[in-house]
Design a protein around this nucleic acid. Structure first.
Length: 933
RNA sequence: GCCGGAGUGGCGGAACCGGCAGACGCGCGCGACUCAAAAUCGCGUGGGCUUGGCCCGUGUGGGUUCAACUCCCACCUCCGGCACCA
């Protein structure tokens, strides 16, 4: 009997040995191809949780696999060590954030080491150390010099609990709560530092150089939100230019009013005295509204006419100017032209405030409807309609007629015949046409709309209250879904451009506008500049001083880092301790030498993590030496060899945060001349999330947390790694299954016994047959193929199942004469090599115990021989009419004729074929034969 | 509302390019070992039936094909992201 498998003994032993031997130290070696594998660095919250393991262990497996395949692999680890929880801990427990963070890091480093990963700890980087954040500040300074960093007063999202501003992407959900603590955010006007990520918006939309999950590409694309259209210059009646951005210049003739954001600079100038009071009130309301909890966002539109008018440059129409909070100052020009006929929001607004609607785009579906009010036409109209082939239905006392573009004219002719002197009938489709006794009119302009409305009011006093034709038509339920549409279509009622087809309408109109100098092609993005200011102590200080004489002065490169004082006292309110730290606050101006104060805001921690993959190359590079404008924050030799990151793994939750910021950073670094590529990480793969056994998100309050330390203690790291690979599709994740892990543990025990326990048949007692040898070797080489391909594709679950199947096959083979043969040795050797990346400790232990040379992790990955995969005998599936009726063992190279003969000879096949005509035989060589009768 | 992703046994999940649905594991059942239990090992395990065989079965309904989890059309459900972005 061999020793039992006791992972608790062998794992620490090997971890110690590997560390002593610096087995995982990665050094530049130009003779080998490099592979930079990176997994997202953890925040040192205190304990490594199973999510970290789930992200990191399979990533480690792949890094190890690449290494065995001959790559020089860099797989570093570090800590994203600035951030709020450290300050909260300081308030709650009186520990200084630095102490709290560093002791957490120590614990987590130990936990990480228990995983047995091939991290190169000599490259560890911790973002809160001066040697690291000196370069974070250096990047700020560079951005400042490049004009990419600027300060502005802006309403920003602010978390009252965390006491700091948040980036737009840190505000989550419909309730607009703080990503960290769940508190509803408020708007606050503050002087903030921004980085011009928008300058890279267009380039960030280009994903052609990277292999990232479709999901992430889509999320980033939506986040950047590119819209193409035109900027069109309207004029106010006084003559001020008033520019709007629109994606639909083709609807310009349908603009019946304009809406400005309440904060728009022209509002104060344009508001007429009689409206001033109301406008001020509304502006106050709008400003406050964003401060009030957004939970009560009733969708009802609000707004106000400010007394001024603008002139539509295409048709000279005079249209009123309104303000409303549905127009945002932060997007486009803060002003819109409203085309209620072709925009849902504008339509809603127009309906509520009685503003006219003019259709200017034909309906692509050609739908036309007409509702004939009782008394509008003579008796017999309904009969005549039916006779003429129209479909009409009685509805609400009238007649609802469904038409199409083609039949509308014939219908109008018929209506004219039957129209009563005091009646009218309207036809609503692309055009809104009214048949009056004295003529046919369309809603083709503001004037046309007025005229029609007046006639209707005159003819029907009940409509005297109606402010617009649209309002009147809205009251007829039959019309509701044809009153506005947002599709492209032929332009109508659009002056010289009437008739322009929908597919070229935007283009032609924009050209037409440009020729006349009133508009031009324009692009807008939803992406906003990155607000990096945080009103917190535990972060990298923004290297800026404010001088009474010189104003905003950046700290010289040579003076970096601006040290974050470690003796700061954190106020229990959570306020920024730097504001009360006299020693930090007061300094001298680098320009004039006079008294100055330091910026007390620190940088968003996403800044620190935007460049950490570069920091790993040479952590705390040139610490102690002064930096300069033309410094390089990392060792160029290392950079030249290792960059860029080849494979990056981590959670998809960073899609529109970290993953966009780090792309931005890399592009800026390229423009700084620091790197010569455009994208930081070539391949990105996201793991899913492990839920509690109850299917819910793991949380302390639910009590469903799985602690990796406990699992390692109980089963060993190899089992935990194996189960994390085996249990789920890696990209998907799912609930934890406490029984599932037992299966992996049992398997490793079987592997242990398989390798160490002698076979029972007595080796060589009876020679193995060539077939037995071939079968075993086929298993071996088939498994190499499967495991190799699955590891390449991040399909970790099938890697383990292939190894399990192989183990089972070997267990069966062990009792046969193949045991002890060369093929057997090859099989065992292969099993251990394939197991090595997944379960590095047991693989090493068995490797060494069976007398092979240390270390298994320095061996090459096995190659499979395709010739050995070929089977001599295959199972031929025989189908009759597509249903399986028999299975035959046949030679793999059987001809179609022979296969057919053999199939037809089978009694069960005969039962189905007998007495029937064979219509077709489909033969898939070596696999299947389908007889169609 | 818009944009993604996913629906396969009791459960996690396999199935290459359209060719044996359910690999592997969990769970469950039976058996061996044991005084007994645990562990371990062996066998079985989608549902149904008239059980050496047959019928049904990959969210639903249609279609293409000799053949569909896989391709096409329509729909349902769940998960994720965005959401007055002109």
């Amino acid at each position: 009997m061999p020793d039992p498998y006791i992972p608790q003994e062998i794992e620490p032993k090997w971890q110690k040995k590997w560390e002593e031997d610096r087995l995982y130290r990665s050094v530049v070696d130009p003779s080998k191809p490099k592979h930079y594998a990176l997994t997202m660095l953890p925040y040192p919250s205190g304990d490594l949780h199973i999510g970290h393991w789930y992200a990191m262990a399979p990533s480690d497996v792949r890094a190890r696999f690449m290494r065995m395949r001959g790559y020089n692999v860099l797989f570093p680890m570090g800590f994203d060590a600035f951030g709020l929880p450290a300050e909260n801990a300081a308030i709650a427990h009186g520990v200084h954030p630095y102490k709290w963070t560093m002791s957490n890091i120590e614990r987590m480093r130990r936990q990480l080491k228990s995983m047995g990963a091939m991290f190169d700890w000599e490259r560890e980087a911790i973002t809160c150390l001066p040697g690291y954040y000196r370069w974070t500040q250096w990047f700020f300074r560079k951005m400042y010099d490049m004009g990419l960093a600027y300060r502005k007063r802006a309403p920003v999202d602010f978390c009252p609990k965390c006491n700091t501003t948040l980036a737009r992407e840190q505000v989550v959900g419909e309730e607009r709560v703080c990503e960290r603590c769940g508190t509803p955010v408020i708007k606050k006007e503050l002087e903030q530092w921004f980085w011009k990520i928008t300058a890279y918006a267009e380039e960030l939309l280009d994903f052609s150089k990277i292999d990232w999950p479709e999901r992430v590409v889509t999320m980033q694309t939506n986040w950047i939100g590119k819209s193409t259209g035109a900027n069109v210059t309207f004029r106010t009646e006084r003559g001020d230019p008033l520019m709007v951005f629109t994606t639909r210049p083709d609807t310009l003739w349908g603009a019946t009013f304009m809406v400005l954001a309440p904060e728009h600079p022209l509002v104060d100038e344009l508001t007429t005295p009689e409206h001033r009071e109301a406008v001020e009130e509304y502006k106050y309301f709008a400003a406050r509204q964003s401060e009030i909890d957004r939970l009560s966002t009733e969708k009802e539109k609000t707004g106000l006419f400010i007394g001024a008018y603008a002139v539509n440059p295409v048709n000279g129409e005079r249209i009123p100017i309104w303000i409303s909070d549905y127009v945002l100052m932060t997007y486009g020009t803060g002003a819109i032209m409203a085309v209620p006929a072709h925009d849902e929001r504008d339509f809603e607004f127009a309906l509520k405030f009685g503003l006219p609607v003019i259709p200017v785009i034909d309906r692509p579906d050609g739908a036309v409807r007409s509702f004939v009010r009782p008394g509008a036409v003579r008796e017999g109209f309904a009969g005549a309609l039916t006779e003429a082939g129209f479909s009409a239905q009685a509805r609400d006392g009238g007649l609802a007629v469904s038409l199409s573009r083609e039949t509308a004219d014939r219908y109008i002719a018929l209506v004219r015949e039957y129209l009563e002197p005091g009646g009218w009938v309207e036809i609503v489709g692309g055009q809104w046409t009214f048949v009056f006794p004295d003529g046919v009119f369309s809603v083709d302009s503001l004037e046309g709309e007025r005229r029609i409305l007046e006639r209707c009011r005159e003819l029907n006093p009940a409509l005297r209250e109606k402010r617009t034709v649209a309002e009147m038509l809205w009251d007829v339920p039959f019309y509701r879904d044809v009153l506005f549409h947002t599709e492209y279509g032929t332009m109508i009622n659009s002056g010289p451009l009437t008739g322009t087809p929908g597919d070229v309408a935007v283009q032609r109109t924009t050209e037409w506008l440009a020729e006349r100098g009133v508009g031009e092609f324009a692009v807008n993005y939803r992406l906003r500049d990155w607000c990096i200011s945080r009103q917190r102590y535990w972060g990298a200080p923004i290297p800026i001083v404010y001088c009474d004489r010189c104003g905003i002065v950046p700290v010289p490169y040579e003076d970096l880092p601006v040290i974050l004082p470690t003796d700061a006292v954190i106020p229990p309110t959570g306020e920024n301790a730097l504001k009360y730290h006299e020693g930090f606050l007061h300094t001298t101006c680098p320009q004039c030498g006079g008294p100055a104060t330091r910026e007390t805001d620190t940088m968003d921690t996403f800044v620190c993590s935007s460049w950490y993959q570069y920091a790993y190359l040479s952590p705390y590079y040139k610490e102690g030496e002064p930096a300069h404008a033309d410094s390089i924050p990392f060792d160029p030799e290392e950079a030249k060899y290792w960059l860029p990151v080849d494979v990056y793994t981590g959670g998809v939750e960073h899609a529109t945060m970290h993953l966009i910021y780090t792309r931005f950073f890399t592009k800026v670094m390229r423009d700084m001349g620091l790197v010569d590529f455009d994208e930081p990480m070539i391949v990105l793969r996201n793991q899913g999330i492990i839920l509690g056994a109850d299917g819910e998100k793991m949380s302390k309050s639910r009590g469903n947390v799985v602690a990796p330390d406990d699992l390692v203690e109980r089963y060993g790291a190899d089992t935990v790694r194996g189960y994390l690979m085996f249990g789920w599709r890696w990209e998907q994740g799912g609930p934890w299954d406490p029984k599932g892990i037992e299966g992996v543990h049992r398997w490793l025990n079987r592997v242990w016994n398989l390798v160490l326990e002698p076979g029972s048949n007595g080796a060589g007692a009876q020679p193995a047959s060539p077939k037995e040898i071939a079968d075993l070797r086929r298993w071996t080489h088939r498994t190499i193929k499967r495991v190799t391909e699955d590891l390449e594709n991040f399909e970790f679950n099938t890697v383990i199942s292939a190894l399990m199947e192989f183990t089972n096959a070997l267990q069966r083979a062990k009792e046969t004469p193949v045991y002890g043969t060369e093929a057997w040795e090859e099989a065992i050797r292969t099993l251990l090599l394939l197991l090595a990346p997944c379960c590095p400790h047991i693989a090493e232990e068995l490797w060494v115990r069976t007398g092979r040379p240390y270390s298994i992790h320095l061996q090459s990955w096995p190659e499979y021989d395709p010739a050995l995969l070929v089977e001599e005998v295959v199972t031929l599936v025989v189908q009759v009419n597509g249903k399986v009726r028999a299975r035959l063992e046949v030679p793999a190279d059987i001809s179609e004729g022979a296969a057919r003969e053999a199939a037809l000879a089978h009694p069960n096949v005969q039962r189905y074929v007998e007495g029937k005509e064979i219509r077709q035989v489909v033969y898939v060589p070596g696999k299947l034969i389908n007889i169609v009768v």
